[in-house]
Design a protein around this nucleic acid. Structure first.
Length: 425
RNA sequence: GGAGUAGUACUCAAGCGGCUGAAGAGGUGCCCCUGCUAAGGGCAUAGACCGGGGAACUGGUGCGAGAGUUCAAAUCUCUCCUACUCCGCCA
């Protein structure tokens, strides 16, 4: 969350900065007023508590000396009710402020292009030219069904729509991609992680999924209603360090985290209903970094390159866009999306997203570091990037590596992971 | 799932409702001593968070978390979390 001191100091500036997200933030003026009321109450109630503490001490002393304490007891008796009611008001105000801050998005970095929606995102770079075919390319679900490596019908029988069964070499390809990606990143110094796929409410709150986007998550009945299916490895991996102080010498911490990710896809009814572009359950390899603030943005650029490298090695065309202000995610200060070429749709589609939250998540999750022994604690910067979405990478391979006869060539880099298979036919 | 035990600072650990923001030990830092090392001695070692103040300072909260009893809670009560032991079940 953003620092309440910013609101205290200059609420107009904060509102102005947030306004590029094309939403209304006038309620922050109420937050400022509540904060003032709270501090004023604190001064009053703390004075009363000080009096009570002093008198309590005196009572203890008198009793030890076997003296009469009735007068002091009488004089302190009325304080309790006042303190209790003021405490209650403070708690109520704090709850409201807390909720407002938890539902206020991050401030954007100065380099984020201003724009109203996804149509105004800015292309940063391209890799390769879109794949050309001498025939009409098929969609990945047609290819997958014909090769009998993807089975959507049976998946919907087992569960429902937006699920898939990977079969035979399809299953092997999915598995190969996970290993390939993890190897690629691990070789560059990212520590491999396989975290829990179920996370609790605190974790979801720290990374920003809650309290605002509860309907996007799968909640499960166990865990007193406070357990959720992992929506992205960013959640469990960043929360590894929640409420911790990270030793300065360990920064930047770099992780590549493999998870199965789960999304309710509430609100995307009708979109990408066919195929595995948008499923409730998908594999994802995610890059996560914890960095000192001054290195946050250089680490973001490096992470983008590491993420791109997956498609470079696989030789699949993509471009990178910088999300404009109106399309930015809730908790992030700056985001690059990698979009991969999808021949059947004749367009680029998102396959990865690389972002920095600056200290927004660190403040929510209380993740800090200290520069040296006597230095004050500071919040780290947290970064996350896809490395990549595995299902969508499989889509990109099926479509970009398809042949006229319906077969699919396996990218060279994956052949060793496919037990030598060079083609699916 | 059942039964039990425990959670105090960097670590271990004492702790009677008030004199405990917390004994003691280790560790760590600085200093002394011994030619160096091993060993020994001295001093320091609660931070964090929320406030007030221009500042020096100062108030509040903190003993797994939350609620309660009380003028007063590490200490009493309740709920929860976590770890460990035994039983049951199970990949």
């Amino acid at each position: 969350m953003i620092d309440i001191k910013l609101i205290r100091d200059d609420v107009d500036l904060v509102i102005q900065k947030l306004s590029t997200r094309n939403k209304d933030f006038e309620y922050l003026r109420d937050v400022k007023a509540m904060d003032e009321r709270r501090r004023q109450l604190l001064v009053e109630v703390e004075q009363l508590k000080n009096i009570r503490n002093e008198k309590s001490k005196l009572i203890g002393q008198l009793k030890r000396e076997k003296k009469d304490a009735t007068d002091v007891l009488d004089s302190v008796a009325h304080l309790g009710a006042d303190i209790a009611s003021m405490d209650q008001e403070v708690a109520m105000i704090e709850e409201k402020i807390e909720y407002a801050l938890l539902t206020t998005p991050n401030l954007l970095h100065a380099s984020v292009p201003i724009g109203k929606d996804e149509t105004e995102n800015v292309e940063i770079k391209r890799f390769m030219t879109p794949t050309m075919f001498a025939f009409t390319p098929k969609a990945h679900y047609e290819i997958g069904e014909q090769l009998d490596i993807l089975d959507f019908e049976r998946a919907s029988k087992i569960t429902g729509s937006r699920f898939v069964v990977y079969k035979g070499l399809g299953a092997r390809l999915e598995r190969a991609l996970i290993s390939f990606m993890m190897d690629l990143h691990a070789k560059k110094g990212y520590t491999e992680i396989i975290p829990p796929y179920i996370v609790n409410r605190k974790s979801m709150t720290a990374t920003g999924q809650l309290p605002k986007f509860e309907e996007d998550a799968f909640k499960i009945a166990n865990g007193n209603g406070d357990w959720f299916l992992n929506p992205t490895a960013e959640v469990p991996t960043i929360n590894m360090y929640r409420d911790e102080v990270i030793d300065m010498s360990q920064l930047p911490l770099k992780f590549c985290s493999y998870t199965m990710a789960f999304r309710s896809e509430a609100g995307s009814a009708g979109r990408d209903t066919r195929g595995l572009i948008r499923t409730h359950q998908f594999n994802k390899v995610e890059l996560i970094k914890f960095a000192v603030p001054e290195e946050g943005y250089s680490e973001l650029e490096k992470m983008l390159l590491d993420s791109e490298d997956v498609l470079k090695v696989l030789k699949i065309p993509y471009h990178v866009i910088s999300l404009c202000s109106g399309d930015m995610g809730f908790g992030m200060a700056k985001t690059y999306d990698i979009e991969v070429w999808i021949p059947s749709q004749n367009t680029y589609r998102e396959i990865g997203s690389i972002s920095t939250a600056e200290d927004y998540q660190a403040r929510r999750g209380n993740i800090r570091f200290r520069r040296d022994k006597d230095a004050k604690l500071e919040y780290v910067h947290t970064l996350n990037g896809s490395g990549l979405a595995v299902g969508r990478t499989l889509v990109a391979i099926l479509e970009n590596y398809q042949n006229e006869d319906g077969s699919v060539t396996i990218p060279d880099a994956l052949v060793p992971y496919m037990m030598g298979v060079k083609e699916i036919k």
